[in-house]
Write a protein that binds this DNA or RNA. Sequence first.
DNA 1: CGGGTATTTGACGACTGTCAACGCCAGTGG
DNA 2: CCACTGGCGTTGACAGTCGTCAAATACCCG
Lengths: 246, 246
Amino acid sequence: MTPTKPLQELPGPHPRCDQCPIRARALFQVVSEDYIAHAEQYRKAQYSLPAKAHLYREGQHPNMAFTLFDGWIMLYRQARDGSRQGLRVALPGDFIGYQAVGTSGASHAAMAITACTLCGFEHQDLRDMLHDQPHLAVQLADIQSRDMASCQNQMLGLGRKRAEGRVAYLMLDLFHRMRERGANDGNSIAFPLTQEIIGDLTGLTVVHTNRVIQKLRSSGLIESGGRRLVIRDEAGLSEVAEFDQG
Amino acid sequence: MTPTKPLQELPGPHPRCDQCPIRARALFQVVSEDYIAHAEQYRKAQYSLPAKAHLYREGQHPNMAFTLFDGWIMLYRQARDGSRQGLRVALPGDFIGYQAVGTSGASHAAMAITACTLCGFEHQDLRDMLHDQPHLAVQLADIQSRDMASCQNQMLGLGRKRAEGRVAYLMLDLFHRMRERGANDGNSIAFPLTQEIIGDLTGLTVVHTNRVIQKLRSSGLIESGGRRLVIRDEAGLSEVAEFDQG
DNA sequence: CGGGTATTTGACGACTGTCAACGCCAGTGG
DNA sequence: CCACTGGCGTTGACAGTCGTCAAATACCCG
């Protein structure tokens, strides 16, 4: 096992990772207890990661894929000038880091936005699992296909929407995904993204991100600050975001 | 079978689709003749599509995935104002249209850039295949994972590169992919993209796309016109494109 | 030869980036 | 308790990339 440096094994073995969202969502969404037990034998370790630490970096050979147990992670790529393009925010339950055979290294970096805990699976073990449990293979294909669809939303935004629409879309997307997880408080959610990270994700500079957020606030669409986000006018925000379908 | 309207079955049955790239690349990359035979039983039909026709549109239920046999296809999404964001150009051998179970419709549209021929597979049949042939499941996961990596390149470009870099990157990407297929003629390739489509793919307007292309030409990096593209200075173009790794 | 499609050019302005400060706040250490 | 420090948010002035509008030219195919 060769985890990146900031990775730390949790103190002591976890019995059966009982609340691990691996059961609830992600790869093993609707599978029976038998499958769970089967999966257990492959799960290598549970990791924890402090905020701002990297799970893996571009070009590295993480050799593992992960189910995010708790916390937020940003996947991003870096341009030559050092600026970062955020690809996706992973929320609890999401599956990240799967990599094709024969690829030389990770196509992107993964950085903890907040402190995180994760379950790690070796790639080869994952492939073995897909062999043994064809159901999982179909599920993985579906997970990847859904990820792809959300990437396409991101591309549409980066290529064709104004700054305001991109930021609004990001906020709505995160709001809905948190709500799916029951992690909302009415129309507000915990929101640990700094404006710098919002800028990374929307392809904007920090300065412009700030101006856009202020505009969204003064339009009465959102409230934000203190690591929380309140959606004041969901319909209006959806309009600005060109957000389709809840 | 409910193909979209512009789909037409080829005249007569094809014996065993002998040159079908399904064998060479895509889902069935390195598999034995046994698997090929097995795959045959699932392949529903071979289709042909004239240039500019749609294979499927956003929100439609194509109910099929395809291996592109011949021709170029653009996958794109449409913004509310009608403008298109190109997501990817599919070249011969590429696998497109796979969709997760339970999704309501295609997340993107697929339009023929040139006349095309394709092999179609019903989604349910594909899932059955993944069950029966676990090797295929791993291959599908890898295909998707590679597609994802190239999407990430696209996102990096849309979010963080200037117009010149995006256009240069697109050209180099297509050049390399054509060369992998042995479809290059030295440092030139057939290049059926109009400037409008290049603009769709790079998130630019036609007008600006035109100016950028002229700049690339006058810098001596490329020659283009007459449905062909010549890479005059690959190193220079790669520099402008921030193109990493051949 | 004619009509539609694709490319090219020009003028103008808006959106967004860049540079440079300043303010706010929490945590830290004296 | 208070000054210090670093991270984050905010503001202003200015520049440039790129979009918009409008039109002319070139190209292709029947």
